[in-house]
Simulated scan of single mutants.
Amino acid sequence: MKSGVFNRILGMLILALFSFSCVSDLDFNQVSNLKLKPVFVSNLAYFDVLANQFVTNGVEQIITVDTPTLDVFKDSFFKENLVRADLFFEINNTINRAYTLDLIYLDKNNQSLYTNNFVIPAYTGVENLVTETDVFENGKLDLLKRTTKIAFILKMFPGPILSESSIGSLKLRSSATAYLVVE
Rank of each mutant, 00 (worst) to 15 (best):
residue 131 T to E: 10
residue 12 M to I: 10
residue 4 G to H: 12
residue 142 D to W: 04
residue 143 L to R: 03
residue 112 S to C: 08
residue 156 M to Y: 01
residue 82 L to D: 01
residue 126 V to A: 14
residue 182 V to P: 03
residue 111 Q to I: 08
residue 153 I to C: 02
residue 100 T to L: 03
residue 148 T to S: 09
residue 28 F to K: 07
residue 18 F to T: 11
residue 19 S to T: 07
residue 76 S to Q: 13
residue 107 D to V: 04
residue 119 V to A: 12
residue 32 S to L: 07
residue 180 L to Q: 02
residue 144 L to W: 07
residue 14 I to W: 05
residue 164 E to A: 15
residue 163 S to L: 11
residue 137 E to D: 12
residue 176 A to V: 15
residue 120 I to E: 02
residue 172 L to R: 07
residue 51 A to P: 01
residue 128 N to H: 10
residue 37 K to V: 00
residue 95 I to K: 03
residue 164 E to K: 11
residue 133 T to V: 14
residue 157 F to P: 04
residue 113 L to N: 01
residue 97 R to K: 08
residue 146 R to Q: 13
residue 96 N to I: 01
residue 164 E to F: 05
residue 10 L to P: 00
residue 65 V to K: 13
residue 49 V to I: 12
residue 178 A to L: 06
residue 167 I to A: 15
residue 121 P to I: 03
residue 22 C to W: 12
residue 156 M to I: 04
residue 105 Y to M: 03
residue 152 F to H: 11
residue 115 T to S: 14
residue 22 C to M: 09
residue 2 K to N: 10
residue 135 V to Q: 14
residue 154 L to N: 01
residue 70 L to D: 02
residue 33 N to K: 08
residue 154 L to P: 00
residue 21 S to A: 15
residue 22 C to S: 07
residue 47 F to S: 05
residue 122 A to Y: 02
residue 16 A to W: 09
residue 18 F to D: 08
residue 11 G to W: 11
residue 119 V to H: 13
residue 74 K to N: 12
residue 55 V to K: 00
residue 17 L to W: 14
residue 102 D to P: 03
residue 120 I to G: 00
residue 25 D to I: 13
residue 150 I to R: 01
residue 60 E to C: 10
residue 15 L to I: 09
residue 178 A to M: 10
residue 101 L to F: 02
residue 155 K to V: 11
residue 86 D to P: 01
residue 13 L to E: 11
residue 84 R to D: 13
residue 119 V to M: 03
residue 135 V to D: 08
residue 20 F to Y: 09
residue 29 N to M: 02
residue 89 F to R: 04
residue 79 K to T: 08
residue 129 L to W: 05
residue 173 R to I: 14
residue 6 F to Q: 09
residue 4 G to M: 12
residue 34 L to G: 00
residue 107 D to S: 12
residue 174 S to W: 08
residue 71 D to T: 02
residue 172 L to G: 04
residue 71 D to Y: 02
residue 43 N to K: 15
residue 140 K to I: 13
residue 21 S to M: 11
residue 100 T to W: 05
residue 28 F to Y: 13
residue 28 F to E: 13
residue 177 T to Q: 14
residue 127 E to D: 15
residue 157 F to A: 15
residue 140 K to V: 12
residue 124 T to P: 06
residue 126 V to T: 15
residue 10 L to E: 08
residue 176 A to N: 09
residue 5 V to S: 14
residue 120 I to F: 03
residue 32 S to V: 13
residue 30 Q to D: 07
residue 103 L to R: 05
residue 26 L to C: 12
residue 68 P to G: 05
residue 30 Q to L: 08
residue 48 D to P: 00
residue 152 F to L: 15
residue 133 T to W: 06
residue 100 T to F: 03
residue 34 L to Q: 03
residue 50 L to G: 08
residue 20 F to H: 10
residue 71 D to R: 08
residue 174 S to M: 05
residue 98 A to W: 03
residue 28 F to Q: 11
residue 61 Q to P: 12
residue 101 L to D: 01
residue 169 S to V: 02
residue 177 T to D: 05
residue 143 L to C: 05
residue 171 K to S: 05
residue 159 G to Y: 06
residue 80 E to K: 11
residue 171 K to I: 15
residue 62 I to M: 09
residue 147 T to F: 07
residue 86 D to C: 00
residue 20 F to G: 11
residue 154 L to M: 07
residue 131 T to M: 07
residue 72 V to T: 11
residue 154 L to Y: 00
residue 12 M to W: 12
residue 86 D to G: 04
residue 99 Y to E: 02
residue 99 Y to I: 04
residue 21 S to Y: 12
residue 8 R to F: 14
residue 47 F to W: 04
residue 103 L to I: 06
residue 106 L to W: 04
